[in-house]
Design a protein around this nucleic acid. Structure first.
Lengths: 166, 166
DNA sequence: TTTATTTATGTTATACCGTAACTCGTCAAG
DNA sequence: CTTGACGAGTTACGGTATAACATAAATAAA
């Protein structure tokens, strides 16, 4: 069922990953051009690295890769690139994992929920108007002005749920 | 409108905090007895410290307090007590803040949403059937089995929203 | 009660995550 | 050519968390 639908691929579905990654990268390049920000070699490379799989990567994991490829060897090199990607909406930070994942969505400035599979360790992003509404409503019910909402779901994707009997 | 309703107090409302803290502490003692777990001096003290305010506290902040009172001076002392409290549902971990807050709810094994005010830095917990349903539905829509859902909302409580003009 | 077992506390040491502050090079505007 | 903005590199440090081991206290078994 690896669909080539209009929207972004679901990481938990089998899909043409090379195509998936290339699409995201291309879109990032376009968007950077439009916004007048620079997708420099380090930044671009970090995005490529994140796009190699749908697992979230720690900053130091990314840093090791960069260092091995001749970029800087110190934490700020990775953190600055990651911060840039997050700011531009090219990547997301997954707080539960202290890690980062490429953004697969074509929407700018969204804040999706994350589905974190503890089996294969992949992370998917998902949006839901109901969820968004419920968050705003809950805030409102408490007189609370919600500026950012974070939703992270830990569990098992269908494939991993099938494998792991217990 | 500082209500003394049956449920737990809303941290963002003015309330009799001494009473609020005492109630939670008493309930923790009772529950520990029922469950056959031990609310030892360090553990109890950590809960008391968390209950001093509705701000979330970092582990090292807690540790400093413990050390000053003659308990162990090393990180595991604080982390173990905090882990215990979280496991028993006496406290929550707030990932966005890398910090911990006492649980005010009387429900066991709940996973509330957190309302984190960036003004007064207090944290409230809130539950919403709609939110819970939306999370489960979103998981289901992706064939994903949700085991734990984390919701953290950053923003301003009504009091702080009033103060901060912008 | 004495012994054995489990559970909790404490330690040292270390790993992991993240940022402040400064230097240098590049590139475009004046 | 100088200035200013920005990106990338560095050193150095601070904050967060856990592994591994030693000791003491509580509980269960003998």
């Amino acid at each position: 069922m690896s669909a080539h639908a209009p929207g972004p691929a679901d990481p938990f579905d089998s899909h043409d990953h090379a195509h998936c990654a290339a699409t995201v990268l291309r879109r990032a390049e376009e968007q950077a051009l439009e916004e007048g920000v620079r997708l420099t070699p380090v930044r671009r490379r970090v995005l490529e690295i994140l796009l190699e799989s749908h697992k979230a990567m720690g900053a130091y994991e990314v840093l090791d890769r960069l260092a091995a490829e001749g970029f800087g060897k110190q934490p700020p090199v990775a953190y600055r690139a990651l911060d840039f990607l997050v700011e531009q909406g090219f990547a997301h930070r997954v707080r539960r994992l202290n890690a980062y994942a490429a953004c697969l969505s074509d929407k700018r400035d969204h804040s999706p929920a994350f589905l974190i599979c503890r089996g294969c360790e992949q992370v998917a992003e998902a949006e839901s108007p109901e969820l968004r509404a419920a968050i705003l409503a809950l805030g409102e019910a408490h007189g609370f002005t919600v500026e950012r909402g974070t939703v992270e779901m830990l569990g098992l994707c269908s494939r991993c749920a099938g494998k792991q009997p217990e």
